[in-house]
Nucleic acid binder design. Structure first.
Length: 515
RNA sequence: GCUACUGUAGCUCAGUUGGUUAGAGCGCUUGACUGUGGAUCAAGAGGUCAGUGGUUCGAGUCCACUCAGUAGUACCA
């Protein structure tokens, strides 16, 4: 049997409806804030996408890569074609990579399209142009192990502001996320936008004597897991390591105990979720160690002030001092949206979906491509993750009505059926004619049910002669089918013979009925 | 990647201490029903018991390995 690749999905109409609902509602909010819609290719030169470069002609760690079949010239760092000793251009089959997020392509677009090449030599006296875009589409990651709800192809829905260092643009990210989720139909009580600042964490760690970047990343990674492994687990992993419940051994960082204590004290300060203002007060009273910390704190205070004025209170946006986000490239504020909704899995356990959005400030991303520091901030909705959440928690019921179905009683009347369908379509009523080979009436009406048709049109020789059609209200019929005994009575209610000229009016009437 | 568990029809599962031709419900197909489903009845299709090797007179059942799935854990742009 043919098979699809694991980690890739077939998207059925139901998932598609949900997916596009999310995209349409969120995009409208993004547009409202002035973001414009861009798309970029699914494949990019590997070099454009950052540090996850392939090292062989195979799938490299985490990404899908392959050689471009076309031979193209190689460029050096200053953008000139490289030549061999005899002056011939060096050509190569470049490495191409399928995008693993939408942010790396964004920085490529910015560098290539927005940053005019004529300005590349003026970088010392140059103010980066402003660029605000939203984008959605599939991204690809090679995952060796696939957790439920994690795929190799999945959709993201990003919005980013490139060219602003203002904390106001960070505050705006929180507002956009909050607005977008509510536009999608997520109840305010069921999500929280969480905000932290990498600069604060960095400052604290420097205060603890951790300045080495690699070590900093390791410590942050462990802090990030605090809500999962608890305070105790964090301390063990910072120290000598631990054994988890399944018996797997997790290596520790072997920090000395005074460092661990200092980090623990920092985290303990927030064991009870404090309000934004409490947190700011606590931070400023306790840690005034260094410049980067102060800068981070000041940014958080600005974000807080703006959110307060604009009505984004603690029930929408909170500060979480242990929030890290995995990505190394974040340089300032980081964002994550946590869903508070729970669902019961098939084994009866209560579970959560977790993070449904993520983002942050990444002032160094464009710099990696063109050597110029361009501040940028933004976030992304995990479309499929969110869709999964809405399905599992049954939080959103999308109203969907399928097409009217014209039942084919008598194949010789096909032209008549086509005319009926055309008439309904001309009035913007989606209409389908049954073309299946299983002609039984039962089959045709089951088909109508499956495609969620509201109405079936029945017409045979008798009706044709009388100049009428029979219109059956399938939604009403379904409602009544449970408790009706007398079939004729039921038929009378759910089904009506109307004059051919009244068809459109009658169908419209049924369609506008609310259940 | 590591640890544990699971793998029988499209789905959910039963299958005795190893014993003849592997079952049920739901779903599916056809018909009763040459013009009215969400009912009934009847018939039917559908299985390399995840795969390979082994133990045995005999394996769905026991053993080993492989693969896949689930849960936890690690990594995660």
């Amino acid at each position: 049997m043919p098979q699809k690749i694991k980690g890739f999905r077939d998207i059925n109409p139901e998932i598609n409806r949900l997916r596009w609902h999310i995209i349409e509602k969120a995009s409208r909010v993004y547009r409202n804030y002035g973001f414009e819609h861009w798309d970029t290719p699914i494949v990019e030169y590997a070099d454009s996408l950052g540090k996850y470069l392939p090292d062989a002609d195979s799938v490299a760690e985490g990404v899908y890569s392959f050689r471009n079949p076309e031979k193209e010239p190689i460029f050096n760092a200053s953008g000139n074609r490289m030549t061999d000793g005899a002056g011939n251009f060096l050509m190569e089959n470049h490495f191409l990579t399928m995008r693993y997020d939408l942010t790396a392509p964004l920085s490529r677009v910015y560098a290539e399209k927005i940053w005019s090449p004529s300005l590349i030599n003026q970088k010392d006296n140059f103010k980066a142009p402003l660029f605000r875009r939203f984008q959605y589409g599939p991204v690809f990651r090679f995952e060796a192990k696939l957790d439920p709800g994690r795929f190799r192809e999945f959709w993201q829905l990003d919005f980013d502001t490139v060219g602003s260092a203002d904390a106001a643009s960070d505050a705006e990210v929180c507002m956009v996320l909050s607005d977008a989720l509510e536009a999608i139909g997520i109840q305010r009580a069921t999500y929280r936008v969480k905000v932290n600042n990498r600069k604060v964490l960095k400052g604290v760690l420097i205060g603890c004597g951790i300045a080495d970047e690699k070590l900093e990343q390791d410590v942050l990674r462990i802090i990030d897991k605090a809500d999962k492994i608890g305070q105790e687990g964090v301390m063990l992993e910072l120290g000598k390591g631990r054994k988890d419940a399944s018996g797997a051994i997790i290596e520790g960082l072997n920090l000395n105990s005074s460092t661990i204590d200092a980090i623990a004290r920092f985290l303990e300060g927030f064991s009870e979720t404090p309000s934004r203002s409490q947190l700011l007060a606590h931070l400023s009273n306790t840690y005034t160690a260094n410049a980067i910390f102060d800068e981070g704190l000041k940014e958080l205070a600005e974000i807080d002030a703006m959110l307060n004025k604009l009505g984004y209170a603690e029930n929408r946006v909170i500060f979480d001092p242990a929030l890290v986000r995995g990505m190394a490239y974040y340089t300032g504020p980081v964002f994550e949206v946590e869903s508070l909704s729970t669902f019961i899995d098939e084994k009866g356990r209560e579970r959560r979906v977790g993070a449904i959005c993520g983002g942050g400030r990444y002032d160094g991303l464009v710099e990696r491509l063109i050597g110029v520091r361009v501040p940028a901030t933004g976030a992304s909705i995990g479309v499929d993750r969110l869709g999964e959440l809405l399905t599992l928690t049954n939080a959103l019921k999308l109203q969907y009505t399928g097409p009217v179905l014209v039942v084919v009683f008598d194949p010789t009347l096909m032209t008549e059926y086509q005319m009926i369908a055309a008439e309904l379509r001309a009035h913007d009523i989606p209409t389908e004619i049954y073309y299946g080979m299983q002609k039984g009436l039962k089959k045709q009406l089951s088909y109508a049910d499956e495609s969620k048709s509201p109405v079936a049109i029945l017409l045979g020789g008798d009706e044709l002669e009388k100049g009428v059609v029979t219109v059956r209200n399938l939604r009403l019929g379904a409602q009544m089918s449970g408790n009706i005994v007398d079939k004729n009575e039921w038929k009378q209610m759910a089904q009506k013979e109307v004059a051919r000229g009244q068809l459109v009016t009658h169908v419209k009437e049924i369609l506008t009925q609310k259940d």
